[in-house]
Amino acid sequence: MSADLVLDHLSKRFPGARSAALDALSLTVAARTCTAVLGPSGSGKSTLLRVIAGLETPDAGTVRIGGRDVGPIVAERRGVGMVFQRSLLFPHLTVRDNIAFADRVAGMSRTAARTRAEEYLAMVQLAGYGDRRVGELSGGQEQRVAIARALAAEPAVLLLDEPFSALDPALRTDMHDLLATIRRAVSPTIVLVTHDRDEAARVADRIAVVEDGALLHEGSVADAYRRPRTLQVARLMGGRNEIPGRVVGDRHVSVLGRFPVRQTAVEGDAVLLVRQEDVLLAEPDTPVPATASRIEAMVTDVRRAGARTDVTVRTPDGTVLHAEAPGTAPPIPGDAIGLDLPHAALHVVAA
């Protein structure tokens, strides 16, 4: 049921558009894995899915599924299932018959198609809902049925176009858990489009960051957060600490000091990155760990953000940095504080 998906230099420009929707984008998604395509609105994410599905024709480039160029193949024969932000279920059919639709179109008997539909209903944890009408379902239930309908066609590739974005946080968490269950059961190759980096980190094996139709970064979830390829990727992934300076030998040199660079980096102008959640708060007079560098600073702002507390500090030279503090006993504005920057968490990108 699963197959490799290989996109090779896909380009697409819509008539009258100032820029390309896809700009020579290449991406490989291994069979049975999930890649989240992350980017701001208008970055080309949905166009990418529509090209894979055969709903849009690229101006250049190829889409290969299981080694086969599917460009000449019509959408319904590509072995691709797609779930949109809206469920797009047939309101005149029962839940069971919505799921059985693909099998019925393929010529399967009604009895057999409905029997298979019940199997997929159970997979999405809606056993017993087969006789209901679409109008009797909640938003989360509709999306479960839409996923079941897509899976019933046994696609080699499952495309998810922000299918959970309209759901409340609790339901989204349930859907993320459901997706993990589905992956264990049938192992489809999945491409998930989202603008939510937390969702991408939770459900995907790898993250592809797209902006203006171009692929800026592709790698593991950890790489996207802590080893981004560019400053723009770091910002899209929510990084807040950027220290301008230069790489000299194996050090990044800036007004804040000399910090070891663990990666191979070309000498010259570079920005040192360290994610706010990796910065450790310390009392100024406590020993500095051997595996970290300390910066002395003053707290300028403290804001609670759910279970986290965001702490903003300013160093004597005026550099503003951010850290996260435990929910209990956070510092207060005006406190002198030390920031320990773990060497393993430091990363440089070109300025």
Rank of each mutant, 00 (worst) to 15 (best):
P15K: 12
V233H: 06
P342K: 00
M298Y: 06
G327W: 15
R304Y: 13
G213Q: 09
V233E: 11
R251M: 09
A297K: 05
L22E: 15
E267G: 13
D340E: 14
I147L: 15
T62A: 15
D223S: 06
H92S: 08
A350G: 10
I243Y: 04
R13K: 14
S87N: 09
V83S: 07
L160G: 11
F14Y: 11
D198E: 14
G245L: 14
H176Q: 14
R149E: 05
R308F: 14
T173S: 13
A170Q: 10
E56H: 02
E283R: 11
G268C: 07
S11V: 07
I99L: 10
R202N: 11
V320Q: 12
R96M: 07
E142Y: 05
V274T: 07
D198H: 13
R275D: 01
L178M: 08
V74P: 12
A305R: 12
F259K: 03
G16F: 06
V313Q: 05
V288K: 12
A185E: 13
T35R: 03
L38D: 00
A270G: 04
H176S: 11
L346Q: 08
V288T: 15
V261F: 13
L93W: 08
V288M: 06
P333T: 09
L272S: 03
D335K: 05
Q276P: 03
A75I: 07
A345F: 01
L27G: 07
G213P: 07
A305P: 12
G42W: 09
A122G: 14
D285R: 04
R32A: 15
R68F: 05
L48V: 04
H176L: 08
R184K: 13
A329W: 08
H343T: 08
R86K: 14
A112K: 13
E119D: 15
A297P: 06
A222H: 12
L93R: 14
R96E: 13
D161G: 02
V29Y: 03
H347D: 06
L137P: 10
P188F: 14
D317Q: 11
G140W: 10
A3L: 05
V311K: 00
G334L: 10
L171E: 02
A201I: 04
L126A: 13
G338F: 02
T57P: 01
P284S: 07
T194Y: 09
T94W: 00
L178N: 14
A112Q: 15
R206Q: 12
G219D: 06
A323E: 02
L280F: 01
G239M: 11
S46T: 15
G130L: 08
R202V: 14
A20S: 15
A17F: 04
A156I: 00
E162K: 07
D8V: 05
R50D: 03
V124F: 03
A117H: 03
S220H: 01
T230V: 09
D301H: 12
I73K: 11
S138M: 10
A214E: 01
A208S: 08
E118H: 05
V349F: 12
L281A: 03
D198Q: 12
A102D: 08
L231Q: 13
P244S: 09
G44C: 04
A150L: 04
V279I: 07
F14A: 04
E136T: 07
V348L: 09
D205F: 09
L179V: 10
V349M: 09
R144F: 09
G257Y: 05
I243Q: 03
T312E: 09
